[in-house]
């Protein structure tokens, strides 16, 4: 073994190691940081048909109207409850039937006037007690008012009251008639 040759190579090895360990290592050092994406999702809307629009007994050839204020035992206005984020703006739409149908296949005319709907955002009123200051009264159920919202400050639901009219014919077959009233509600982002 040539001793002098070893003494020359040793610093070479040390120098290369130092360069690799300290020089190259520092050049390619990484820095990473973690931020975040955050959001708060508000309460989803839930709908309930709290009360059906009930016309009770109807006589052949005699039209019958149930007012949006009706709360009788046999004739009641429909009550829909919209629950969600307090004071959030919503878009709502009714799909209203033109006929009620019996299980036997007979139809009976059904209609809704431009004043058959009331909306209570106070969270306290019934069809009979709601007034304009509680929301909206005498509204067209085919066209919900602008500014429609869920409840008010700290109130997380709105009630929609709906009346209507049925017109049985003179020869309307006896039976129980029904039709779907569909309410669709979604947030509008306001």
């Amino acid at each position: 073994m040539n001793f002098s040759r070893i003494r020359i190579q040793f610093p070479v090895v040390v120098a290369l190691l130092c360069f690799v360990l300290f020089g190259v290592g520092n050049i390619y050092a990484q820095q990473a940081v973690t931020g975040s994406a955050d959001g708060v999702v508000l309460a989803a809307i839930t709908l309930a048909a709290t009360e059906n629009l009930d016309f009770g007994d109807v006589f052949q050839g005699v039209p019958k109207t149930v007012a949006r204020t009706a709360t009788g035992t046999d004739t009641t206005a429909a009550i829909f409850t919209i629950t969600g984020e307090a004071e959030a703006g919503v878009t709502a739409q009714f799909v209203l039937p033109e006929y009620l149908s019996s299980s036997g296949g007979a139809n009976m005319l059904c209609a809704f006037s431009a004043t058959d709907m009331a909306i209570d955002t106070s969270g306290t009123k019934t069809p009979l007690t709601v007034v304009a200051g509680d929301g909206w009264v005498d509204q067209d159920p085919r066209n919900f008012p602008a500014g429609m919202q869920i409840g008010g400050l700290g109130i997380v639901f709105t009630s929609v009251f709906l009346g209507g009219k049925v017109t049985p014919s003179l020869f309307q077959p006896a039976g129980t008639y029904s039709g779907d009233i569909i309410l669709t509600v979604s947030y509008n982002g306001t």
Binding site: N26, A37, D38, L42, A44
Partner: peptide, 26 residues
């Protein structure tokens, strides 16, 4: 090569991505 590694890079978060309140479906 010293200027290349005289100081480590640094990275900091100034703001997070904040969506705030959101309505379901929107």
């Amino acid at each position: 090569t010293l200027p290349l590694f005289a100081a480590d890079e640094s990275v900091t978060v100034n703001n997070n991505l904040t969506f705030g309140t959101m309505f379901p479906g929107i």
